[in-house]
Design a protein around this nucleic acid. Sequence first.
DNA 1: TCACTAAATGAATAACGTTCATTTCCATTA
DNA 2: TAATGGAAATGAACGTTATTCATTTAGTGA
Lengths: 213, 213
Amino acid sequence: MRRRAGRPSQALLGQGQITRAALKLVARDGYKALTMSGLAKSLNVAPSALYNHVASKQDVLLLVEDALMGRVDVSAFARMPWAEAVRLWAHSYRDVFSAHLPLIPVIALLPVTNAPQTIKMYEAVTDGFLRAGWPQERIVDAIVALESFIFGSAYDANAPADIFATGELAEEAPHFSAAVSLRRNPAGHNDADAAFALGLDALVAGLAATLAG
Amino acid sequence: MRRRAGRPSQALLGQGQITRAALKLVARDGYKALTMSGLAKSLNVAPSALYNHVASKQDVLLLVEDALMGRVDVSAFARMPWAEAVRLWAHSYRDVFSAHLPLIPVIALLPVTNAPQTIKMYEAVTDGFLRAGWPQERIVDAIVALESFIFGSAYDANAPADIFATGELAEEAPHFSAAVSLRRNPAGHNDADAAFALGLDALVAGLAATLAG
DNA sequence: TCACTAAATGAATAACGTTCATTTCCATTA
DNA sequence: TAATGGAAATGAACGTTATTCATTTAGTGA
């Protein structure tokens, strides 16, 4: 299904073009606007034409997902101690997908086969774990644990500020309501960032202790 | 919008009935089958009749979500030390929503107002944290961090076994591929459970250290 | 020039959530 | 008893959605 090399004219569509158009569409109008019709229109093409290059809309989401994985910064693993590198990677990972929540089920549930950027990222992270002395057989579990936290935190980063407002039922949950109203964080940090930092520090410290023990 | 008390016959629909029917439908045929038409049919009613008791399908999901929150076991907080209670609660929480992935965006993004079971759960958890000596102003962040990990782990629990199969690109990620193939866990535990246990232990230990420090 | 093929088209379909005018049926009031 | 009011059910309709299919277009190689 790859496109031939020597085909100068009439080369309208391709997976690359579709991916770029989808990214642009999502950046401008969000995922609600990422429809096959809208995508086709942005490429000046009929919706059905997309199906010559892509098997389904899921396929489009996979292409977009892999492209975004290339934006996750793994460079810290090559130049920093493990704990600090994990923190920087996790922050970058969360920030990228906070703006792409609908992709999280795709990442979390679909095989990485044929997702080169995704595999590349995992390789860089694995390298960092190996250099830190992690035993091969625990590395994937550790990465999965960190990823689970990151995905959940990406959701949390998009939660409205009043998500824990108890409303009329406040009297039935006095301790929780009090804890919610006392939740105040350092200037410049919103609630989601504080919870993310707290959990990430705990997770990294706990994993380091596991490795040492 | 509450139903009157003395209305014996003709009492066809109500939020309670809708919630129960939706839970039954999902348990039998999954979330793909939870459509307004299917839900109405299971209640022997026209689809439009549902809108007399519910504003939207989102509303139905909210009702289901709150009902499920009642199934999360928080009893350990009343009878066990903090670390062990958190572990049991987290396991129960993950297990409940592993079978209800489509609800995770709903839980993570929508206010808890008018979700009594949800608020009840948070109150029980908050109580447990208070008894363990946590300062009020950190409790919500700690719960949010744990929840983020739990939601992500619920996704992971539904991932196919071959999710990390690198396929044709294995040569470009040798270290990762090796780590994936060495990922083997004790009998009776699948991969997702091992990663969940590893991360949960690390998170709990790390949070305990934060509290102590 | 002629076939072959990749790729675009436009019409069509089924399923979805949702709206709305209308009707039904019960409980209350006159 | 008869009339009234209102909650709730109906069935038809609408606008989107992803996806399919037969058909046409146009460029390439023989």
